[in-house]
Amino acid sequence: MTEPVPTIFLVAAEPSGDAIGGRLMAALSRRLDGRVAFDGIGGERMAAAGLASRVPLSALSLFGVFEVLPQALRILRLVRDTAAAIVAARPAAVVTIDSSGFNFRLARQLRQQGYKGPLIHYVAPQLWAWWRPAKARSLRRWYDRVLALFPFEPEFFRGHGIECRFVGHPAIEEGFGRAPDPTFRARYGIAADAPVLAVLPGSRGSEIKRLLPIFAVAVAELGRRIPGLHVVLPTVPTVADRVEQAVAGWPLPVAIVRAPGDKPAAFAASDAALAASGTVTLELALSGTPFVVGYSVNAATAWLVRRKVRVRYATMVNLLMDRAIAPELLQDDCTPTALVSALLPLLTDPTARAAQRRDLATAIGLLGGGEEAPSERAAAAILELVSAPRS
């Protein structure tokens, strides 16, 4: 008698999680010779791997306590509905990917509704950066296993009684750091000798709304100071149209990069980058592209963060090196004048670029890893729980 095909229910609530989910689904399919079904919530990358998302990803890409509040009732309703759908579907396992604000509520609701199957969270929350012991205790109650991106994280979580497995950072698989694509500049209308700045204002609508106007003023000033400066702006489907409209009036050439496969080439072609805080900074580090971080959130959200944060830096490479190898201009410091001052040396001084590149390479070397791809290690850790007997 043929064994039934297992269903894995995956939930990604923003574009970075969608990219992780797409690679994870491909790895699960390889390990199970295609004998696996998928259900859940995701975006274009997960759709390409075979997922028919129950809701559009754009409905969930929010950030910040006070940015989320206006949508709270709708999100809580979606949490309850998703949990009920999972309980009814009885999947072989549930994998929540990053986005702790939505996914931890979903995990709690699942257990309250009686879900007894394996529950795994992929992308360990950075609780080591916050004074949040209660959250660690909650994770222990809800999740069977947490999958960590950084090698120092399992020790922290095990200290709180949470089963944690290091799998590595998925950015390693995205092609960042490969040899530059010799066709990229020509395909996007950029002269071979033009200075290039990558601009990365985030993947959430709230980030675009807050950061892009600040970045626009800084970029315009850089354009006045650096002849021939060209901007490349990789974006994601959830905000691409909005970004393209916003930059239409910029006073220098802007190439919008929508294809995910061209993002590593865009970084490789860039002399420097202006980036929102987040996963993209590690992608830039893997590419060896010097960068400056600019980030700002609602003032009330920032006040809450300052009360709870326990680390000196917001950017992983700075945390790894325990010093600011990449400038961080946050909240009141995130001004066009400050951004221009930090970016000018990286765009005009080869010595400054080389110095940051050396530091970025050292930081990446501290990440650890191995020969097996992170998504393959994650798939193995998930299937290990699927095949284990449940009490």
Rank of each mutant, 00 (worst) to 15 (best):
L286M: 10
D181Q: 02
T82I: 05
P227T: 08
S277V: 07
S391H: 11
S29K: 15
T335C: 02
R306T: 11
T279C: 02
L149D: 10
V95E: 06
M316T: 15
A324R: 13
L51E: 03
F63L: 15
S391D: 13
E207T: 04
F267V: 03
E155K: 15
V217Q: 11
P213I: 15
P56H: 03
A19G: 09
R185F: 01
A129D: 06
V236T: 12
L147R: 00
R137I: 06
A273R: 12
R132P: 06
Y143R: 00
A388P: 01
A13P: 15
L69A: 14
A13L: 10
G40Y: 09
A276W: 11
E283D: 08
R187V: 13
A299H: 09
A268M: 14
P260Q: 09
L73C: 00
F66W: 12
P70G: 12
Y188V: 01
V65R: 03
A324P: 01
T301W: 06
P91R: 11
G168V: 09
Y295P: 08
V257G: 02
F102D: 00
L76M: 12
L284F: 04
L57K: 01
A326Q: 06
A136P: 05
D39S: 14
H230G: 03
L76W: 09
N318M: 08
Y122P: 12
C164I: 04
T82K: 04
R137P: 01
P345H: 08
G159T: 06
L282I: 12
A324I: 12
R353F: 06
L62T: 10
E376L: 04
H169Y: 13
K308P: 00
L222N: 07
G50H: 05
L229S: 12
A129N: 13
S391L: 13
L367N: 11
G189E: 12
